[in-house]
Write a protein that binds this DNA or RNA. Structure first.
Length: 358
DNA sequence: TACTCGTGGAT
DNA sequence: TATCCAAGAGT
C-alpha cells in the first residue's frame, strides 16, 4: 500500500497557515499589528535590507535608518554618501545605491507615495519580482504571490517538486499562487516566510509542528530534507592584491572612493592595486597612491571571501608628514572613521594595519 | 541563462 | 576549515 499526502484544499491550507501564524507570529520592528497594514516606507526599506540578509543582521540597521530618515522624502533628501555610510557592513551595496535612487523616484515622481500595485512597484529601482509582491501584499493587502527562498523550499516540499533551482522557479510560483488567499494577504505572505524560517528549515525540518505536515508530499516520501534541489555552484577562485595604508603626522588615514558601479561601488577603500586571480606580487610603483613614500610590508595578510571569489590582501604601510592632496582621495582622522563608508573588507584592512602600527 | 554582487552565523 | 545559507536584483 502506498502512502500519499492528504488532499487538502487550497483555502484550507491558507486558513491553517494563518491560524498557525496567529499563534506563532514574531514581533519585528517593521511589522504592523495582526490584520493591519504597515507603513509602506518601512515595509519597502525592510524588504530591501532583508534581501539575502538575516533578520538578526538587519535589525540595528533598520533602527538607525528609520531613526535618521523617518520617511521616504527624508531619505530622498539625503546624500548618497550618507546612505552608503549607514549601509556600510550590510553588503550588496547596489541595494543602497538603488534604495537612494528609488527614494528619489518615489519623492519626485509619485508625490512621496509608493505605487500600491505589484506592477507599479516593479518599475522602481531595486524592486524585483519578490520585493514588488511582498510590498504589495504587506503594505497594501494585495493578494500577490511572493516567492523567496523560504517559499521555494516550503512549496518544493509540499508539492514534491524535484526539479533543481533556479529553473524550477516558475513552477514553484504557479503552485504557490494556487494557495495564496485573497484575504489577509500581508499576514499570509509573512506567515509562509515564517514557516520556512522557523519550521520548514533547510536542515532538520520540524515536521511534527508543521500545520501542513499531513499535506506534505516530501514528508510522506521521506525526502523533505533533500528539497529543494539546486544546481551545483562553481568553486571560488582566489584573487590577490596589495593595499597601501598611509598615515600622516596627525594620525589621519588616506581613503579613496571607489567607482560608483561594480564591486563595493561608491564605497571607501584603503587605496589598493587591482585584485587579480593568480597574481602573486604587485609592483609597488604601479599602484601606490603617492610617490616618494617608503613602504613597509606588514606581517600576515587580510583574507576575505566575497560571493564569488576569495581575496588575499597584502598590506603596505607608509608615513607622510602632512597629508598632501591625492586625486579621488581624502584624509580621515582615525577617530572619525565611523563617518566613512567602509565596507567590511576595508574595515579589516584598517584593523590589521592599526594593530601592527602601535 | 548565467554571472555579478557582501556578510556573518550555523553546521 | 569549507560549505551552505539568508525576506534577490541587475545585467
Amino acid at each position: 500500500m502506498t502512502r500519499t499526502a492528504a488532499q487538502i484544499s487550497s483555502p484550507d491550507l491558507a486558513r491553517r497557515l494563518l491560524a498557525w501564524y496567529d499563534r506563532h507570529r514574531r514581533r519585528l520592528p517593521w511589522r504592523a499589528e495582526p490584520g493591519e497594514l504597515a507603513d509602506p516606507y518601512r515595509v519597502w526599506l525592510s524588504e530591501i535590507m532583508l534581501q539575502q540578509t538575516t533578520v538578526a543582521t538587519v535589525g540595528p540597521y533598520f533602527q538607525r535608518f528609520t531613526s535618521r530618515w523617518p520617511s521616504v522624502k527624508a531619505l530622498a533628501a539625503a546624500d548618497l554618501d550618507e546612505v552608503l555610510t549607514e549601509w556600510a557592513g550590510l553588503g550588496y551595496y547596489a541595494r543602497a545605491r538603488n534604495l537612494h535612487r528609488c527614494a528619489g523616484v518615489v519623492a519626485m515622481e509619485h508625490g512621496g507615495r509608493f505605487p500600491d500595485t505589484e506592477t507599479g512597484l516593479k518599475t522602481l529601482p531595486g524592486v524585483g519580482d519578490y520585493t514588488a509582491a511582498a510590498v504589495a501584499a504587506i503594505a497594501f493587502g494585495r493578494p500577490a504571490t511572493i516567492l523567496d527562498g523560504n517559499v521555494e523550499r516550503v512549496i518544493a516540499r509540499l508539492r514534491l517538486v524535484t526539479d533543481p533551482l533556479p529553473g524550477a522557479k516558475p513552477k514553484l510560483k504557479a503552485l504557490a499562487a494556487q494557495i495564496t488567499p485573497t484575504e489577509r494577504a500581508g499576514d499570509y505572505a509573512q506567515a509562509i516566510m515564517d514557516l520556512g524560517a522557523t519550521v520548514c528549515t533547510p536542515r532538520k525540518p520540524k515536521c511534527l509542528t508543521c500545520p501542513w505536515s499531513d499535506a506534505c508530499a516530501a514528508r510522506v516520501e521521506g525526502v523533505a530534507e533533500d528539497l529543494p534541489a539546486k544546481t551545483p555552484k562553481k568553486a571560488k577562485p582566489t584573487r590577490r592584491g596589495t593595499c597601501f595604508f598611509l598615515v600622516d603626522a596627525d594620525g589621519a588615514i588616506l581613503l579613496r572612493r571607489r567607482v560608483e558601479s561594480g564591486l563595493l561601488g561608491g564605497m571607501q577603500e584603503v587605496p589598493s592595486s587591482p585584485w587579480i586571480e593568480g597574481a602573486e606580487t604587485v609592483a609597488v610603483s604601479d599602484h601606490a597612491p603617492l610617490s616618494g613614500v617608503t613602504w613597509r610590508q606588514l606581517p600576515g595578510m587580510v583574507r576575505h571571501t566575497f560571493t564569488h571569489f576569495h581575496l588575499e590582501l597584502t598590506v603596505l604601510a607608509g608615513r607622510v608628514e602632512t597629508g598632501p592632496q591625492v586625486a579621488d582621495a581624502r584624509w580621515w582622522p582615525v577617530d572619525r572613521l565611523g563617518e566613512a563608508a567602509l565596507p567590511t573588507v576595508m574595515a579589516k584592512v584598517v584593523r590589521h594595519a592599526m594593530g601592527h602600527l602601535t
